[in-house]
């Protein structure tokens, strides 16, 4: 187990989970994060998930794939996911890398992320 400061924090705001990544994660930490988040969706009966990746200086193929998996798994567990805070340089590199992130809902920042989730749920209610 890793000790020291938490790498990721998952907070609850109403029925939305806000997961902030604080530092660069390696592959196994990324998978642990995925596991923890999916578990907490069930525990808290969350309907929405916001993942804040503003602290990530690199989102490579593995990180993208993991974020994609989290979004897919959350959807199957009944929660909408939105990724927020992708840095401009990181976005640039992701496009160059050739990441297909079309399916992954994203928003500029936390605030926009909340708005996005609210809109998704409005649509679902109608």
């Amino acid at each position: 187990m890793t000790s020291g400061p938490a790498l990721v924090s998952i907070l609850r705001q109403g029925d939305v989970l806000v997961a902030s990544v604080h530092t660069a994660l390696d592959d196994s930490q990324m998978l642990r994060f995925q596991h923890d988040l999916v578990r907490q969706i069930g525990e808290h009966r969350a309907r929405g998930v916001i993942i804040d990746v503003a602290a990530l200086d690199v989102i490579d193929s593995f990180a993208s794939r993991t974020l994609q998996s989290i979004a897919d798994i959350s959807r199957l567990r009944g929660a909408a996911t939105v990724i927020v805070g992708i840095q401009p340089d990181v976005a640039f590199a992701m496009v160059r890398l050739g990441m297909g992130i079309g399916e992954l809902p994203t928003a500029l920042d936390l605030e926009e992320g909340m708005v996005h989730l609210a809109r998704v749920r409005d649509r679902a209610r109608r």
């Binding site: 690199v58 989102i59 401009p88 990181v90 640039f92 590199a93």
Partner: peptide, 8 residues
């Protein structure tokens, strides 16, 4: 962006 591309 050069830095990020390199690191990626």
């Amino acid at each position: 962006a050069d830095l990020t591309m390199l690191a990626t």
